[in-house]
C-alpha cells in the first residue's frame, strides 16, 4: 500500500512538473516581445549559447569524422568497397551522428550552463527582483534563451556534419588513399537532400526544443540553494541526453523506416 501510494505520488508530481514546464514555455513564448528590446537580448544569448559552443562542436565533429573514416575504411576495404566510404560517412553523420552528438554536446556545454545561470539568478533573487520591477522574467530571461537555443542547435549540427565530412575526407582520401572523385560522387549519388539533409535538420530542431526546454525548466524550477542548483544541472544533462536518444529513436522510426 505504501509502495502504491509512493508510486501514485510520484506519477502525480511528474504530471505537475510537465504542467509547470509547459506553462513556463507558453508564458515565455506567447507574445513576441518588442523587437527593439528583444533583438539585442537574443543576439547576446546567441553569442553565449551558439558561438561559444562552436569550438567544442567543430573539434568533436572533426575527430568523429576522422574516426568514422578510419573505422569504415578498415571494414570496407575487406570487401574492396572502400569507394563507399563517402556515403557511409555522410549518411551516418547527416541522419544520426550530426543531430544526436550535437544535441548531447549541446546539453553538456550550453544546457548545463543555462540551468546553472538561471538557477543562480533564482538563488540570488534576480528573478524575483525582475518581477518586482514589473518585468516578466519569463519574457526577459527565459524567452531569449529559448529562441537562442532553438536557433543555435540546428546551425551547430550543420557545422558539425560539414566539418566531420571534411575530417573524413582528410583521413579517407588524403591519408588512406580513397579516390577523391569516387568519395564525392558516390556520396552524392547516395545522399538525398530531402530525405537525409532536411530530415537531419528537422531532428535537430526537435532536439533543440527538447534540450533547451529541459535546461530552462530545470533552472527555473530548481531549489534555489547550491545543492539545488548542482542537482538541477546534473538533471539537465541526464534528462536531456535521455530525451534526445528517445526522440531520436522515434524520429528515425518515422523518417527512415519507410
Amino acid at each position: 500500500m505504501d509502495f502504491l501510494q509512493k508510486l501514485g505520488h510520484k506519477t502525480l508530481s511528474r504530471f505537475a512538473a510537465l504542467g509547470r514546464s509547459t506553462r513556463m514555455l507558453i508564458g515565455a513564448l506567447v507574445n513576441i516581445p518588442n523587437p527593439k528590446k528583444g533583438t539585442p537580448l537574443l543576439i547576446r544569448q546567441l553569442y553565449m549559447i551558439g558561438y561559444q559552443s562552436l569550438l567544442i562542436i567543430m573539434v568533436s565533429g572533426l575527430f568523429i569524422g576522422m574516426v568514422l573514416a578510419l573505422q569504415g575504411y578498415t571494414v570496407l576495404v575487406g570487401y574492396g568497397a572502400e569507394d563507399s566510404l563517402g556515403p557511409l560517412v555522410a549518411l551516418s553523420l547527416l541522419r544520426e551522428l550530426g543531430p544526436v552528438v550535437t544535441a548531447l554536446l549541446f546539453a553538456g556545454r550550453a544546457g548545463s550552463a543555462l540551468t546553472a545561470e538561471i538557477g543562480l539568478m533564482k538563488a540570488t533573487e534576480q528573478l524575483s527582483s525582475l518581477e518586482m520591477m514589473a518585468i516578466d522574467p519569463l519574457k526577459r530571461v527565459i524567452a531569449p534563451r529559448f529562441w537562442a537555443g532553438f536557433i543555435s542547435m540546428p546551425i551547430l549540427a550543420l557545422i558539425f556534419s560539414a566539418v566531420a565530412i571534411l575530417g573524413a575526407h582528410l583521413v579517407g582520401v588524403d591519408w588512406l588513399g580513397v579516390d577523391s572523385g569516387s568519395f564525392w560522387s558516390i556520396m552524392q549519388a547516395q545522399v538525398s537532400f530531402e530525405k537525409d539533409i532536411l530530415n537531419g535538420i528537422i531532428k535537430s530542431f526537435v532536439f533543440a526544443l527538447v534540450v533547451t526546454w529541459i535546461a530552462l525548466y530545470k533552472g527555473y524550477d530548481c531549489i534555489p540553494t547550491s545543492e539545488g542548483i548542482s542537482k538541477a544541472t546534473t538533471e539537465t544533462v541526464v534528462h536531456s541526453s535521455l530525451a534526445v536518444l528517445g526522440f531520436d529513436f522515434l524520429l528515425t522510426a518515422v523518417m527512415f523506416s519507410g
Partner: peptide, 29 residues
C-alpha cells in the same frame, strides 16, 4: 505590473544583475 512600478523592493542579497555593471543595473528600470 502597473502597481509594482510604484513600489520597489531591496532584496537581502541585493539581487543585482550579475551580467551588468553597476551603472547598467541602476539604468535598467
Amino acid at each position: 505590473y502597473d502597481a509594482r512600478k510604484n513600489m520597489s523592493m531591496l532584496f537581502q542579497s541585493g539581487a543585482l544583475f550579475t551580467d551588468m555593471s553597476v551603472f547598467d543595473n541602476v539604468a535598467f528600470p
